[in-house]
């Protein structure tokens, strides 16, 4: 069975306008999935449903064969699904980095010695060991988000959900966070579900899920998704800049392969 599986999930905040409207998909272990959609398309609601912060009105969600939404299993689910949110300032609990990373394991009642080991592991994984005793207020946005990731990793999750975790960061911070996440996905086999509206962050994903008005409207590899410029535009999305320029050049009669995704690819195609 898949690591995450959603079956016809519906959810509404006000019982009239559905935020998530009949969504079904599966995620396999080790996958890197990107979820895109304009603001208000339901993508953040999805994150909250998968780790049980919200319960679906209809349909079923399973994580590692555990049904999400039961009161009894809620911690079993949250142990497996870590979420890093958008605002780095609003998810750190403690005034010292290591205390913050300890928060999750403390909640689970893990013995002190093991908490220490988990802090070591988590801070090493995000490259923040040197800031162990620092106060988060003195860190940059990117560093704060890395600490937030460490706080989640200390729970040893199988799945990491990034709920627009790079939206408030500068380009440097965004790169830091993305490279940490990619490393976790490759080296620790952490399954990643990255919710974003930076198209450039999507191009390396194994699969992209496109949401509009709470429904999945496309689901494919990035290369296939970004061939559908017109459809994306209709639902408030754009191409990565390199793809956009490539398409524009093609319209001007310049011969280029279809499905160019990155600057690198465009540059190589032009320099041929």
């Amino acid at each position: 069975m898949s690591l995450i599986s959603l079956k016809d999930v519906k959810f509404s905040y006000d019982k009239t306008n559905p935020a998530v409207d009949g969504v079904s998909f599966n995620v396999e272990k080790g996958e890197y999935i990107a979820v895109i959609g304009h603001n208000g398309s339901g993508k953040s609601t999805l994150a909250r449903l998968i780790n049980g912060l919200l319960s679906p009105d209809e349909g079923e969600i399973y994580v590692d064969d555990i049904k999400v939404g039961d009161k009894k299993t809620v911690f079993e689910v949250r142990k497996r699904v870590g979420v890093v949110f958008q605002n780095p300032d609003n998810q750190l609990v403690a005034s010292i980095v290591e205390d913050d990373v300890a928060f999750g394991p403390e909640n689970l009642g893990i013995p002190r010695k093991e908490i220490g080991e988990r802090i070591d592991f988590a801070l090493d994984a995000v490259g923040m060991q040197d800031f162990r005793k620092s106060s988060p207020t003195r860190l940059s946005g990117g560093q704060k988000q890395r600490v937030a990731i460490a706080g989640v990793l200390a729970l040893k999750p199988q799945i990491l959900i990034l709920d627009e975790s790079t939206a408030m960061l500068d380009p440097k911070g965004r790169k830091e966070v993305l490279s940490v996440v990619k490393k976790l996905n490759k080296e620790q086999a952490v399954t990643v579900l990255a919710i974003t509206h930076y198209m450039e962050e999507v191009v390396d994903a194994d699969r992209v899920i496109v949401l509009d008005s709470g429904k999945i409207v496309m689901q494919d590899t990035p290369r296939e998704i970004f061939k559908r410029e017109k459809e994306l535009k209709e639902i408030g999305l754009e191409l990565p800049l390199a793809s956009y320029i490539a398409n524009k050049m093609r319209k001007n009669g310049i011969e280029l392969p279809e499905g160019v995704l990155t600057e690198q690819e465009l540059s190589e195609a032009l320099c041929k």
């Binding site: 304009h38 939206a167 408030g236 999305l237």
Partner: peptide, 10 residues
């Protein structure tokens, strides 16, 4: 343009 989605930004 911080925090806006692609079309919002454009």
């Amino acid at each position: 343009a911080a925090g806006l989605d692609p079309v919002g930004k454009r």
